[in-house]
Design a protein around this nucleic acid. Structure first.
Lengths: 223, 223
DNA sequence: TTAAATTTTTAGGCTAACCTAAATTTAATA
DNA sequence: TATTAAATTTAGGTTAGCCTAAAAATTTAA
């Protein structure tokens, strides 16, 4: 296995290639690589038994490939946790570092690191860390936009976008923070939230889509 | 810079290429690569301004190359310290892991790691960690063989040889341990040492050559 | 359902590192 | 010093990944 192949495998998994057939185009875009390169690589991965590839139709992970992908993502997440918890990194700076480190991580090292970090279950952005025992890894898909006015929820996951992460740090908004939807401005204007029942913050519609939540209890205000 | 080039640079430095002209043959041997590959690479490194290469004569690091090498070795050492101090690795298992990690370590990460480890000055095998401020990095060159019978010293550095390191762990001999030379068996037989004035251990001549020491005080027994 | 647009594949090339085999240079020895 | 031995370079080839351009397949839309 090479770092390059690993990147393809991880991406295919993240595009849900465990259950769906992923078209080449998306892979080419995400990896910033030509379509020709993708074709070539997918043939190789399939020869390795990592994917099944139907030319012109798309690629899908085999069980072996999915396991591999989960292991890679796990290593990535573990390094992210390490960087934040021990090296004082901001959650907006960890992705690139982890991207490099994950390829240099042996099974033994991954195991030792996991133990050292006390078996974390989520990464600093709130994603569930894949585990061997095959826990489903179902992430919530609701964002703050799915709340009614007055309803509360807990921030559970944020998509990795440096600017957003930095802004959230600035206004002290992170995983686990309780927010209440106060108002949605019309014409795609910003959303107003109350954080921890206290201060209010405003977030753009575009950013809100990247912030996933977990409902706490039915606090829909029904006057 | 690529991981491959980095390996060449580090090796040349370790062969004292900062001050001497290193012949290709040694590099080929140590990297387990053909002489032809070495020739090719040395030309490339010289084009990069990292080495000066005189065909048929050998290669030498430029100041730029030496700085680069020291940075790489520093990253290597920092990871070794991390593995031993935080992940409970044995000092005999850290070299290969660090070898991989060092190539995946950004300047920022190296700095954060160094701070986290509290600015260590030696690696787990006792080698001095290169520092920016250009501390000379002169390692002692005396081994236990240079002691007189009855003389004491402190173990300061051990060359990385898995079997030796494991044996030393087994007999609880490590960096900083005080040893006294008790006896040298004739005909290349084993050496007997007293550890911390207490228990005695025996070490083969071959192994002794890899254990460097720092004399404590003039304790030569002059009866 | 045929033409146009999109996606994917194939063909042919590039670079970094590696290799072996042959040619060359340097060093060692008779 | 001439010859042999050792070290090094050059020549020509390989693989992994990438590329562009052209050809083929598929999808969309007229």
């Amino acid at each position: 296995m090479t770092p390059n192949k690993e990147d393809y495998i991880k991406l295919i998994f993240e595009l849900e290639g465990e259950t769906k057939q992923i078209p080449n185009k998306i892979i080419a875009e995400q990896l910033a690589v030509s379509a020709a390169s993708v074709s070539e690589m997918l043939v190789k991965l399939s020869k390795d038994g990592i994917t099944t590839y139907v030319p012109y139709k798309g690629v899908q992970l085999t069980p072996k490939g999915a396991t591999l992908a989960k292991n890679l993502i796990k290593r990535h997440c573990l390094w992210e946790v390490f960087l934040v918890e021990h090296l004082n990194y901001s959650w907006s700076d960890i992705h690139e570092e982890a991207e490099l480190l994950e390829h240099a991580t042996s099974d033994k090292l991954a195991a030792a690191l996991e133990k050292y970090l006390n078996y974390p279950t989520i990464c600093p952005h709130g994603s569930i860390i894949p585990s061997e025992n095959g826990v489903p890894r179902i992430q919530g898909t609701e964002t703050i936009l799915d709340l009614e006015i007055g309803e509360s929820a807990e921030i559970s996951r944020v998509l990795e976008e440096k600017e957003l992460l930095d802004y959230m740090t600035e206004i002290d908004l992170g995983i686990g923070r309780k927010v209440k939807l106060i108002a949605k401005a019309s014409y795609g204007g910003p959303i107003t939230l109350a954080v921890e029942e206290k201060r209010e913050v405003q977030i753009s519609l575009k950013a809100i889509e990247k912030i996933y939540i977990k409902r706490i209890r039915s606090e829909v205000v029904t006057e």
